[in-house]
Structure formats: C-alpha cells, structure tokens
Design a protein around this nucleic acid. Structure first.
Lengths: 261, 261
DNA sequence: TTGGTAAAGTGGTCTTACCATTGATGAGAA
DNA sequence: TTCTCATCAATGGTAAGACCACTTTACCAA
C-alpha cells in the first residue's frame, strides 16, 4: 500500500523543490516577481513546460501566484500565517506594542548573535553596502528612505543568521511594525543627539558581526531595541499629552483607525 | 487584495473542475484508470498540455496519481492535504528541524526568563499542577500522555511570561512540531537514564520559575532544548544509518545525462 | 510451465508557435 | 503642463508534434 517514492524523479518535482527551497531560504521573498517563464526556464536549464508544471505545483500549494500577462509572484502565505492575526490587533490594542518590542528584542539579538557566528563573506559584503546606504540616508532628512534602509539592514542581519525561521519571522515583524516605526523615528528626528545614538548603535552591531563577536553583537542589538523602546514610550507619552490636550475641546470627529493599504 | 477572481477562466481550471466533478459524482471511481493523455485530450477537446495541467492540479490535491509508463489513476484518499504551509515545508525540508529547534531554544528560554520574572501566584499554581501531571505520566509509559503533558507544561510557561506574542508563537510552534516530537521521544524512551534527565530538567525550570530566578530559568530552559536537540540529532543519525544500510541494495544511479544534441 | 525478450502503450520532457492579457510608453488633446 | 488614451512589447496561457524513459503485455524459446 505504501506507494512510497518511485525511483523515478520527475524534473518538474526537482524544479519545484528548488523553487520552494529558494522561497524558504529567503532568496525569493514575498512579493518578488519571478523572471519570465522563458528566461527562467533557460536559467534553470529546463524547458518551459517543465518549469510551468513546477510553478503549477507551487501555485496549488499557495506559494506562487500567476497573472496572465503580468508575471508570476511569490505570495506572502508563509508570512501571512504569522502576521495576519496580529495586524488589526496592533491597531486596536496599543499595549501590544510593548510586547511586540520585547519580542523583537529577543528575535533581533539572537539574529545578531547567530549572524556574528555564521555570516559568510557574501553576507558581510551585503551588510557593508546596506550600512553604507543607511549611514548616508541618516545624513539626509528623507524619512521614508531612513525607514527602508533601517528595515533592509536589520533584515540582512536576520538572513545572515542562516535560520529560515528567524528570517521569515523578522520579515513578518518588520512588515507588522512598518507603519508604526515612523512614529518613533519622527519623534527621534527632532532630537539630533538621539539620532546620532541610533547611528552609533547600528555601527556597533555592524562591526561586531563583521568581526564575528556574537556576544557583543547580541548585546548591542538588545541595547538598540531597548533604546527604540524607550524612545517609543516617550513618543507615545507625548502623543498622549497632545491628545489629552485636544480632548478638552468638544466636537471631535469620529476617530477611526485607518488600517492602511 | 483584489487578487480574488481575475475574471479570466483558464481552460485547465475548467478541465480540472470537470474531472473533479466526475470523480465526486462517481463516474470515475477510486482505482479507476483514466484514458491515456492523448486520447483523453481529444475526448475533452483540449490539448495535451492543458489536460496535463489539469491532471497536475488534481494530483497535488491528492485526487489523482500518475505512474510513468503505467497510467493515471484515481486515488482513494481525497484531501490528505496539509493546510498549514509550514507544516508541509517541515516534511519536505528536514533541515528545517534544526532551525526550528534553534528558534524554539530562543523562544522558550526567553519565555522561562520572563515567566520567572512575572509569574503570578495563579500562574505558579497552574504550573505546579501541570508539573505534577507531567511527573506522574513520566512514570507511566503512555507516550501520548507524555507529549500532551509536556506541551501543556511548556505552554503554561509561555503564558506565564505575559507576552501575548510569545504565547501565540509558542502555541504555533508546539502545534508545528507536535507530530515530530514523537520521533525524539520514542528514541529517548528506550534510554532510561536520558528519560530521567528530562525529568530533572523540567524540575529545574519549574523551580527556577517558582523562585523567581530568571537567569537560572532561562539557562535551564536553554539546556533543556539543547538536550532535546542532541537527542533528535542522534535519533536522526540512527535512522540515517538504518537507511544507508538499506540503500546498498538497489542500484539506481539515474544521472540525467545531457544529450547536448 | 517458466523465463526472458521484444513490442506496444503511456507518462515525462522538449521544441516551436500562436493567442490573450497586462503594463508601460508616448502621442495627442484639454 | 497635465491628463487621457491608444499602441505595443512583454508575459502567461494554449496548442501541436516529436522524442525519450518506463511499464505492461504478449510472445517465444527453453
């Protein structure tokens, strides 16, 4: 009855496994668009029908989605599993932010530790490049660029940890707090000395990973998030104050939290 | 988000639906063999690739099974299909187990740390009860009861940490590895001294939380998972050895040679 | 009967071609 | 200048035919 594994290996299965592996390991991230079927087939050394069968397998698993004339994309199903339940919760219950940052503290310090332990030359090169852009955009005043560079930097650390769960979890958390990061950054932006502190924290983490000092990296990362945490608490307090001042005026329009796009 | 129905109907989807209908209605019964792809394609009025895509869809749903050179058959079991993408990944990519345990090590040691810090009397009472159960079932030889008690104990610790994300993540991970835990436990079961080590490890964690010693609890928890990790590696190695012994018999090199015409 | 071998049938893969849809580009109008 | 809309290249979907690898069956010889 055990139809176990026939000795024959279908090429399309091999290809599907390869794609799945790339998605799992993060070289194909959620939202990424695959090369066109024609190009990709050449790149993988198989014919287009074979590649199509492989894509079809992953599509029926929900990992890929194709749009006629548009392209084939990696879905966020793996991350949605983590993120979806929390997305609206976070808007409705601000006290979750504290738990979230605590979780992030654990996750990122561990990621930094493992990254310092396992980062390859390729990882370090990528980190170097990302740190350079991060450092440069911090000089500018472009808030969005800062957020993007910050997220990319931390994500690269998570991937250098070479643990797929840490990678996906970090990506999920990043997406989750993306909308909320701007708050604290905006708050920090008006305070140059704190702004500089962030830069030096990133520098410390970066160097610790480069020089393969896991404990230093972990502690620096922990301190970094702790700093963000404090800043956010201050920001919230400030917002609170501002709101309570506004609340003294009557006739407030109905507050409705916009869930964003 | 508007991804729902692109309004375009792919022929392969139509065909797949038609086949599925025939199977459900009984005109195609379990064990039946489909006509050959060439004949069937003509009969359905579509091309062979289209029919193949339809068959592939149903194959991945578990309704059909193809044998190279043999034919395509209707299977008896429908929907032995995992809905959790991570669950499926775990089966297909064994290297995930290591990452999973590493993640769990981080998560549970942090949970133990916070639990030792924040556990209320209610939490501790519940932990006491669960530990008592755990200790008693370890005396028996009921494997399932052991697993359940173990999961409940660790889950209670996670909830005593009073961080909703940690609680949720722990529950998710527990569910994910529930099916795979039995392997390592089975392996441990035949080794009484290791079995006792597990008991003492649980005791240490329990006591550290009771006495509010975060660092002790975290380290004990970390050691505990490390122990499980080693055990599982040994178990895998054992399986590996058994498999490699079996592998000496068949001879299927099957290197796919490129014809390079 | 038994064993092996050859032939036919079937799924797997490749090639080529064309169609349908999409998305971006650029021209033209307000 | 800005906006609208038609156009077109890129891309996924479908089709047809061919060849290969494997399985099954039938036949033949011992």
């Amino acid at each position: 009855m055990i139809q176990s594994r026939p000795a024959v290996v279908r090429i399309s299965d091999t290809v599907a496994g390869e794609l799945e592996k790339r998605i799992l390991e993060g070289s194909l991230k959620a939202g990424d668009r695959l090369p066109s079927e024609r190009d990709f087939a050449v790149e993988l050394g198989v014919s287009r029908p074979t590649l199509r069968e492989a894509i079809q397998k992953l599509t029926s698993k929900g990992l890929l989605a194709s749009r006629h004339g548009g392209g084939t994309f990696v879905t966020n199903r793996l991350e949605a599993h983590f993120v979806d339940p929390w997305q609206e919760m976070l808007s409705g219950h601000p006290m979750l932010h504290s738990d979230l940052l605590e979780f992030r503290q654990m996750l990122e310090s561990q990621a930094a530790y493992l990254a310092a332990e396992r980062a390859t030359n390729v990882d370090i090169e990528r980190l170097d490049a990302l740190y350079a852009t991060l450092d440069s955009v911090y000089g500018s005043k472009d808030m969005n660029a800062c957020i993007d560079a910050d997220v990319a930097f931390h994500q690269a650390i998570a991937e250098a940890a070479h643990n797929v769960l840490i990678g996906h979890m970090t990506a999920s958390l990043m997406r989750l707090i993306h909308g909320h990061v701007s708050n604290s950054l905006e708050h920090l932006h008006a305070r140059p000395q704190r702004w500089d502190q962030l830069r030096s924290q990133h520098y410390t983490i970066w160097q610790a990973i480069r020089e393969h000092q896991p404990d230093v990296a972990a502690r620096a990362s922990r301190d970094h998030i702790e700093f963000v945490r404090q800043s956010m608490m201050n920001a919230n307090k400030e917002v609170e104050n501002r709101l309570s001042a506004l609340r003294r005026q009557p006739s407030g329009p109905l507050e409705r939290a916009d869930t964003g796009a």
